[in-house]
């Protein structure tokens, strides 16, 4: 079984994002990591292949610096990787999906594709659907339980209020994963060393015939979300404080 895992190179969520120009950010000083949701996909793919045989290929669209993310993914047990290089800080989801597809077309079709449920930088929540459509594969997103059995995938996804849907798909398929599916392994020193020797095939976005100016969405402006500057602390006895809070919420803020 060949499994592709789409892994995005994203700023660590704990990093402070310093904006640069109208629609960019300083990306040379901050730490980048594999998109946290994608790690559940790497773990799932690696453990499936450990059981059933086959190979796991990481596919990333990103800057040349994304090799750190790719090495990280390979130290978790993936066999090799493809890096589709672009200089853009943001590539929209439709172009990203086209790039992922073109690379997979060249490399040979997978039996399964794992992605994260969404990326934590652009929060666009759609690349996996566009990719699935381009291959005419079925897709389920936000999967937290998965069983693969005789050419079928049975996936569970939360649909709100704790309610869950059980969905059956035929393979090949695309599965967008989320927390709860597994516990991503922590690579050992030997795994990290081994990963350094694994193959990374590099391609250029432009070689794949993709023009970065043809995106469907364009970021015009990035601005910081206003920070709150400290609370109004309520005073007096507990009774006074609670009475005042209820009054404020009803009369001043009108949220009750």
């Amino acid at each position: 079984m060949k499994i592709c895992v789409c892994v995005k190179h994203v700023p660590d969520t704990a990093a402070t994002i310093k904006l640069a120009g109208d629609n960019g950010f300083e990306d040379s000083e901050i730490k980048f990591v594999p998109n946290p949701y994608d790690e559940y996909g790497i773990e799932e793919a690696v453990s499936l292949v450990e059981k059933q045989g086959g190979e796991v290929v990481i596919v990333t669209v990103g800057k040349a610096t994304a090799v750190t993310t790719i090495r990280g993914a390979m130290s978790m047990g993936a066999h090799r990787a493809i890096l589709i290089k672009t200089d853009s800080q943001f590539l929209d989801a439709s172009l990203t999906a086209r790039a992922l597809k073109a690379a997979m077309d060249q490399d040979g079709l997978p039996d399964m594709i794992f992605t994260g449920k969404g990326s934590v930088d652009t929060e666009s929540f759609q690349t996996q659907y566009r990719l699935a459509k381009s291959f005419n594969m079925p897709i389920v997103n936000e999967v937290s339980t998965l069983t693969i059995d005789s050419g079928k995938a049975i996936a569970e996804r939360e649909i709100g209020g704790g309610e869950k849907q059980v969905i059956e798909m035929s393979l090949p398929c695309v599965i967008g994963v989320t927390k709860g599916l597994n516990e991503p392994r922590y690579p050992k020193f030997q795994d990290i060393m081994k990963a350094k020797k694994k193959e990374i095939r590099e391609m250029d976005l432009s070689e794949l015939g993709i023009d970065v100016s043809q995106g469907k969405t364009m970021i015009e402006k990035l601005e910081p979300v206003p920070e709150r500057s400290g609370a109004t602390m309520l005073e007096g006895s507990v009774d006074d404080q609670v009475t005042e809070l209820v009054r404020i919420l009803k009369e001043d803020e009108k949220v009750l």
């Binding site: 700023p11 969520t13 994002i17 904006l19 629609n23 950010f25 929209d92 989801a93 439709s94 969404g118 934590v120 930088d121 652009t122 929060e123 666009s124 929540f125 759609q126 469907k216 969405t217 970021i219 015009e220 402006k221 990035l222 601005e223 910081p224 979300v225």
Partner: peptide
């Protein structure tokens, strides 16, 4: 094109506002 989880939509200008970087910034 699709924009998920918008907080503002300007239909006439085809512009939308949404969160980026886990709530740290807003993108137009």
């Amino acid at each position: 094109p699709l924009v998920s989880d918008c907080v503002q939509v300007n239909i006439a200008e085809k512009k939308v506002r949404k969160s980026h970087f886990s709530g740290k910034t807003f993108a137009t």
